[in-house]
Structures are given as structure tokens and as C-alpha cells.
Amino acid sequence: MMPSLRLSGQRALWAMAGVAIIGVVLPLLLRSDFWLNFAIMVLFFTVLGQAWNILGGYGGQFSFGHAAFFGTGAYVTAVLQVKFGINPWLGFVLAGIGGGLVGAAIGFLSFRYGLRGSYFALVTLAFAEVLRILANAAAFTGGGVGTLIPLKQTAANFQFVDKTGFYFVIFALMLIGLLLAYWLENSRFGARLMAIRENEDAARALGVNAFAIKLGAISLSGALAGLAGAFYAQYFLYLDPRLAYGPGISVEALLVPIIGGMGTIFGPLLGATVLHVVGEIARKVMGDAVGLNLALYGMVLVAMVLFLPNGIAGLARRQRLKPKEERL
């Protein structure tokens, strides 16, 4: 089962270069704050989705609890900054490490005891909930009231007066995500990971250390989600247990690559773009009613699984492959 839109090798690199150029030029064209914010949110969800994609898309391990990594990254930055005065750029790096460590810990427990499929999804969800309850009860996170990061708008403090600064940070993170996915498609590690996705028992029979590979994938995925969390904290300067560890983030993290195409380099970017364009149109048409946007996302998810189980990228592939299949 080859992933579709698999712009492999050189073509993928060209496409990435194209994305990089468009990305650099884009903020010059977007002179309104609204559209800049829109682009930042799309890129932010691309990063989050790419984090999920590493584990779920390439590794076949569906997580329902990516908020566990995201929230940890967000809280690491926020708490270190507010309580210990640590520079948020350093906090940003530590957030990645923190997310990775939480990933490794959850992965170690789940994979050590052989949880697969739906059981893995449920246990990740439970871990995220445990962290949410703990963050709600602990004193150093500010509990249910939340944590406010004091406003101090200097670039050295990871707060930009001009949103363009945030844009370039999240854009760079998005490029790192693309490169990670490219690396997965062109490395031994990635080949082993995809072999596990297709048939774990067969992969193990061929000598793949499934436990180690999956552990590596969830750590990497957790680290990227943790970085996304740190970015979120700096961008909004506010966190509470529900925002950080609630199910909303976990759902969006899986929605984005599922819509765009799981196990593809550009799937999350495509998914995040489509999702947010649709969301924005819905907001325009139906007004800014609470709940309506998420209800729409849910319908999109159901429709995708029913009609396009391989995502939008899979549609392109189906068109390409059709004539060949008919000849056979």
C-alpha cells in the first residue's frame, strides 16, 4: 500500500523548495492581520498534524491523546518562564524534549505491554486525561484558573510585536516537519516503521525491532507536538488544563492528516489548509455560533472515513491509478 501523492525523492524536495519559497513570500502579500493569523493557525495545525502523522500515518499507531505531548510542551515553556524566569527560547527547546519524554514514557508502557489498534488509542486518551486532571489540581500550573504568561514583547523573549515573527517561527517548524516526513520516507528507520504499519508480525519476523522503532516514532512525534505546544503558549500567552490537555487538541491533531492523507509528506499541510478554509467559510455563512465549527469538523471526519479513507491525497492517487487497474 504505497502512500499516494508520494512525491518521492527529488520531486518531494522540489515541492518542499516550492513550499519554502511560497512561505517566505506569503507574509509580504498578507498585509491584513486577519489573514496572517489565519496562515499562522494553518501552519500551527500542520505541525500538530505532522506530529500525529509521524506516529499514526507512517507508523499506523492511532493516538487519541496527542494533547498529552502538546500540553506538556505548552506547560513546560509557560511554567519555566513564569515560575523560574527561564527564557522562552530555551523553554521552547525544553518543551520539545519534554514532549518527547512524555511520548517515550507513554510509548514504553503501551508498546511494552503490546497495546495495538483501538486499545492503544484508548490508552493514549486516558493518559491525556490523567495529565489534564493533574494539571487541574497542581498548584504550579495555576490549576483550573490557568497560567498567564506576562506580556513582554521582544524577539529575545519569543514575543513579537509584529505577527510576522510568529509566522516565521511556525513556518520553520512546519518545514522541519516536512523534512522529518521526507526523512521517514527515505531512511531505514522510516522503512521499518512503515513495515510495522503494514504488518507488525511480518516485520518482526524479518528482524525488525518493532518495540524500539515504535518507541522512536512516538518520541519524535511527541517532541514535535511539544514544540507546537510551546508555540501555542507563546502565541496566546494563556494556558489552562482544558486548552492544553483537553480532547479538542487530540482530535484536531488526528483530523488534519486524516483529511489530507495519512502517511504522506504534504498530507497534514493539505488537511490543515482545507479544514481551516472550510471552517472559515462556515463561520462566514452561518455566523460565529459556538459548537457549529466543531460539528462541521466531525461531519467532515465521518464523510472522509466513509468516502475517502485515504484522504484528499488518496483521491489524486485513485485518479492516477484507475486506468492501470482497469487494464489488469
Binding site: V251, L254, L294, Y297, L301, V302, V305
Partner: peptide
């Protein structure tokens, strides 16, 4: 995923 989607809806 579908039942999750239904729950969200």
C-alpha cells in the same frame, strides 16, 4: 474514527 466523528457532531 467514525464513531469519534459522530460523537463530535
Amino acid at each position: 474514527l467514525v464513531t469519534l466523528g459522530l460523537a463530535i457532531v
